[in-house]
Design a protein around this nucleic acid. Sequence first.
RNA 1: GCGCCCGUAGCUCAAUCGGAUAGAGCAUCGGCCUUCUAAGCCGAGGGUUGCAGGUUCGAUUCCUGCCGGGCGUACCA
Length: 574
Amino acid sequence: MNLKDHLDARILVAMHAAGISDAPAVVKPSSRTGFGHYQANGMMGAAKSLKTNPRALAEKVTAVLCNDEDFNLEIAGPGFINITLSDTFLSNKLSEVRGSPRLGVEEHATRKFVIDYSAPNLAKEMHIGHLRPTTIGDAAVRILEFLGQDVIRANHVGDWGAQFGSLLAYMEQIATDEEALGAELKDLERFYQSASALFREDEAFATKARGYVVKLQSGDERCMALWRRFINESVTHCQAVYDKLNITLTPADIMAESAYNDDLPVVVKELHQNGLLVTSDGAKCVFLDEFKGKDGKPLPAIIQKSDGGYPYMASDLAAVRYRAQLLETDEALYFVGAPQQLHLRQVFAVATAAGYIGVQQKFRHLPFGSIMKSDGTPFKTRDGAAVKLASVLDEAIDRAYKIVSDKNPDLAEEDKRNVARVVGIGAVKYAELSKNRITDYIFSWDTMLSFEGNTAPYLQYAYTRIRSIFRREKIDTETLSGDLSLTEDAERLLAVKLLQFSEILDNVIEDYQANILCNYLFELAGMFMSFYESCPVLKAQPELKASRLLLVDLTARTLHQGLDLLGIETVEQM
RNA sequence: GCGCCCGUAGCUCAAUCGGAUAGAGCAUCGGCCUUCUAAGCCGAGGGUUGCAGGUUCGAUUCCUGCCGGGCGUACCA
């Protein structure tokens, strides 16, 4: 149940009964304690259009609901209606949520989604820049699936293009020594760098590399074999990173750029038939009025280059065409960096003009900023190279291991290793997810691995503290029973927070801002800690103890579910 | 030049179609462990929301103009 929507609907009905139509109730959580649990802000707006006094309107509305047992209404300020939920209402709703394996979250009407995320370039190793699209996209996938949506993961990896010429030429050069080749491919980044260095410095090699691009495009068998070998190696590397990162992508989710190769001439043909295609300076372009380049000159979307090659505009259009027409998706979400904004606007605009995207279909770009160092400069190594994602993850686990060993030396070695993995990886992911998607963010080991503040370790620790209550008395949460009763304010605050899980998920998917869920979990954990300090659980009288155990269990389940939707693991003890 | 994004406490970040006194964490300072994990809790100080206007009952939020930063702007992806 979405509590906010429920209350909004109740107020709206009362507004209609009071003779107010065509005005929203604008119910939202109260801005501060003392103003009830929720507040309805719609009376001021309604009064404006009805040219009347907002407090008088609020009087009429509250009069309709004055005998309601679910909540108490109070008028405040210029015309706010503060809603205080009754203890009975809260405990009834909590009981419902408790009995639901989905924590009271209803499944939405099913629509089909294509989520385009991660999409590394297979020519190189994944670097730190892939962290954001990968973690944020995966959280979106998990949340949409939890809400009952039909989700297709689309990993649009880069496996084609000029850069593969030098890679293949370099492979060819050392292919005679199978052992050496196998060893070289283990470090893709070095492989790429060796190949591109040769390309820059050795003219003969560069010529050969360019030849390989042509051969590859014409389907030369030996080239294709080398190419497949390389791609397999690279995919294996990516999958290892995904597994370590607890990302739900599998090789089956890969729909590579090259998969659209056969469609590219078709796209050109169809754009031509639609009368959209114009040849300019030898390149086949689509010009749309809304796109202007330097000096106000028309900005083309180049579909085919003057040398006959296809730029990524073409394969992206082919991908839109595939997703819209063959997959018949209702919605497509692109988790791609902000610098690609103009490009994707062009892709969607051309695809719309070409009739690929139907009027009911939504294609959205969800951009995000870059990762910066603490001095505000881009996150690169000293020599300017991208930082390998795999090494970032290893370092996170190493650092977490040191912290865990330091804080809990008694833990068994095997457990320490597992906690270090869960905490280290969780910290890196949570640091990404807990910040606004749009802005750049500062990467800081100390901040993300801290057990204080809005971090994964804090939440994971909160979870273990909660679970330890049950472990201490060997209580099986399956056997919990009794009535839920709320007697202390700390319990009420926790209760309301727990009931908000559903509406929070709805808020998240409005713009796929995972930080909304992170903030919620942080506040939930904080409220639990306050409750835990002021309300004894195991030492309470039997009835109170039973009631509080229900609250504790529900908090644990909500925290666990919330973290799981973010792709973050928990442990029982740390 | 034009387009998009951003500018909030010393630092890192919030603020849900415009709502009440702009909130957290870190850092600083002060309390709380013979009592369920102190990796915790409670409290204090800290702000002209880049600047100047406008819209209105009400603006961090919407509009205009500046200032500062980032990115993009025809055959790399």
